[in-house]
Structure formats: structure tokens, C-alpha cells
């Protein structure tokens, strides 16, 4: 069966635009994933390994003895140790102007962070929160621990 020419063009174009959108939206790259490491994305739980990209909305999860290290596109560094959960709620970055926004929530466990170019250009543009506190960043390296009873 011959597809009309427009249809034959439309599908590849649609796929291309979807790929581009996704490629531009990625927040960072996993530089370390050891032990039990997962990502929760769009309601699905996937294994997370070194070299994987992370996206806004991702929840990074470590189990017993799990560790994750991520470098975001604006050079923000984030790590978590065992039994931790952290969500990259928001990430945008313009590499030409350094404008953007970054919101991270530490839900449980321990996370370390080194703020990057987004916070350097505008400290208000980086927001870190826990279940009950918010943290304003004026530079640059810090630890967040959230103990929970369960």
C-alpha cells in the first residue's frame, strides 16, 4: 500500500521533533550508580546505571548500599547514598545565557550537592527542599539529611 506523500513525511518529522524535545529536556548524566539504584519516571520504576540521562520529574532511588552521582547540564553535582530518595522536580538551563531553574527535593536519606551555573547566575533560581524545609543557596557545597522512621 502506498501512503500519501504527506503521511510518509509526517511520521518521521513527528518522531524527529519528539526526539529533539526529549534531547533538550534532559537534566543531567549519571556518573556513578553502584549497588541498588533506580529511577521512577512517568510512574515506572527503571534500573539506573552509569551513563544514563536523567530528566526533570525523575525520582532517584537507592536501596541498601546504593549510591548515585549525577552531573547536571549546568555543572550542578548531586549525590545520594543508601536508602535515599531525591526528586529533580524542575530543570532548565540556557547554555548561552546561564538562565534557568533548578528545583530538587530530598525526600529521605542523604544527599550532597555542589551548586552550578544556574545558581551562580541567579541564586534564587536554585531551590532545594525537604519534606518540611526550604534551603536558599548562596554557594556552593552542602549536605541534606532527612531521617524517617520507616
Amino acid at each position: 500500500m502506498r501512503l500519501p506523500i504527506l503521511h510518509r513525511l509526517a511520521l518521521p518529522l513527528l518522531l524527529l521533533s519528539l526526539q529533539t524535545a526529549q534531547a533538550e529536556e534532559w537534566a543531567g548524566t549519571v556518573k556513578l550508580a553502584s549497588g541498588e539504584t533506580h529511577v521512577e519516571r512517568d510512574g515506572q520504576r527503571l534500573a539506573l546505571k552509569t551513563g544514563d540521562r536523567v530528566y526533570p520529574g525523575d525520582r532517584l532511588i537507592t536501596g541498601k548500599e546504593g549510591r548515585i552521582g549525577v552531573t547536571l547540564r549546568d555543572d550542578t553535582l548531586i549525590s545520594t547514598s543508601a536508602n535515599s530518595q531525591l526528586t529533580i522536580r524542575e530543570f532548565s538551563f540556557n547554555p548561552a545565557t546561564h538562565e534557568g531553574g533548578l528545583a530538587v527535593s530530598v525526600l529521605r536519606g542523604v544527599a550532597a550537592m555542589v551548586s552550578g551555573l544556574v545558581a551562580k547566575a541567579n541564586p534564587q533560581a536554585m531551590r532545594v527542599s525537604t519534606p518540611t524545609t526550604t534551603i536558599g543557596i548562596r554557594g556552593t557545597e552542602f549536605i541534606v539529611e532527612v531521617e524517617s522512621d520507616d
Binding site: I135, F142, E145, E147
Partner: peptide, 23 residues
């Protein structure tokens, strides 16, 4: 609620920034 701790570290060049914790 959960117990939380936030700690400031010196950065890799030895400089110390600042953080503001709100609750």
C-alpha cells in the same frame, strides 16, 4: 514530622559559601 539536618561544606577551592534554611 521527619528529623532533618542541613550542613554547609567548604567548596572544592576551600571557599565557604552560605545557605539559608527556612522552616
Amino acid at each position: 514530622g521527619p528529623r532533618e539536618r542541613i550542613v554547609l561544606l567548604p567548596d572544592r577551592s576551600g571557599q565557604v559559601g552560605a545557605i539559608i534554611v527556612e522552616h
